[in-house]
Design a binder for these strands. Sequence first.
DNA 1: CTTGATAATGATTTTCAGTTTCATTATAAT
DNA 2: ATTATAATGAAACTGAAAATCATTATCAAG
Lengths: 169, 169
Amino acid sequence: MKLKIIIKKEESFMPWRDGTGPPWLEGKFKGCGFRLTVPRQAILDVLAGTAEHLSAEDIYLKVHKVHPAIGLTTVYRTLELLVQSGMVFKFDFGDGRARYELSENPKGIGHHHHLVCTRCRRIIDYQDFIDEEKDLLQKTERGLSKKYDFHITHHVIQFYGVCRECLGC
Amino acid sequence: MKLKIIIKKEESFMPWRDGTGPPWLEGKFKGCGFRLTVPRQAILDVLAGTAEHLSAEDIYLKVHKVHPAIGLTTVYRTLELLVQSGMVFKFDFGDGRARYELSENPKGIGHHHHLVCTRCRRIIDYQDFIDEEKDLLQKTERGLSKKYDFHITHHVIQFYGVCRECLGC
DNA sequence: CTTGATAATGATTTTCAGTTTCATTATAAT
DNA sequence: ATTATAATGAAACTGAAAATCATTATCAAG
């Protein structure tokens, strides 16, 4: 009996994004041994339907409007699952809470990085220079992987500073 | 009398690191209207005397050994001051606590970036590829500053993944 | 050396994002 | 339908960080 559990765990662990598994989209949830339940679908919908940088509570509130029964706990749990699986990125912009973003946005709000204003906490997404960055990052990743035997799964680049509005005062 | 206060405030505000002021080292504390007190000196000493990535509480404990009277509150406050002034960098490596590093380490443990193992939370500092990174970053910063009227004060690059030790199991 | 204005400190309290627990419910396979 | 297991949510808990506030240290001016 116990053995069976272990085997199941192995099966559902393999395709995860600790580097080896391919990232998968919404429909492929089940392929990893997870169930695409109503709460999980609702949370994905919220993430897919916004370009903002939502916190767990933001997401909870949005989900709550449609499905009042879904609790904050589930939101946290699901987000962790999504982050672990590579479907969602988790960011820290320096205020006390984490922000979440779909890693592959269906609406084609492609890959971007962030400018963070340390005064007003505004976040500016930018896509310029991404190509050059990507280039360097890939090179760096290869070098680092080799030198440190480190299997890189993802990276964060963020610029901090003062935005236009805050500079003007 | 009130006017006098306002002038003082302005004087101590100017040299800060919201971009315009030059960064300054330990001795230059007073130049910004701040007092280099015993607790502050002690905290700086701890930061200068380690290559680790200490949390606020780590720092508190180390300071506490030498100066048992210095409280956790002061550590938090001082760290915030140091971060605001640009003397110290604050990092988030994904565990629940912030980590602090002197931005210009006197021991010449020059500028570096971080590899974060998401399994064991080990942090690897690396300096390789920094030059290439610096190049690109400067270019990017210039471009972004211009396009978005954003005054960039600093940046964070971090790679996440699984380290050698954790890969082996 | 006082004195007075102000900045800094530290004990304590409070906050609040995030976790854990656990009893219950939903799901998928047999 | 039955059973094994995964998912859920209410509530209690945790812990890092911030806020409060009475006290103390510092510095500049007389």
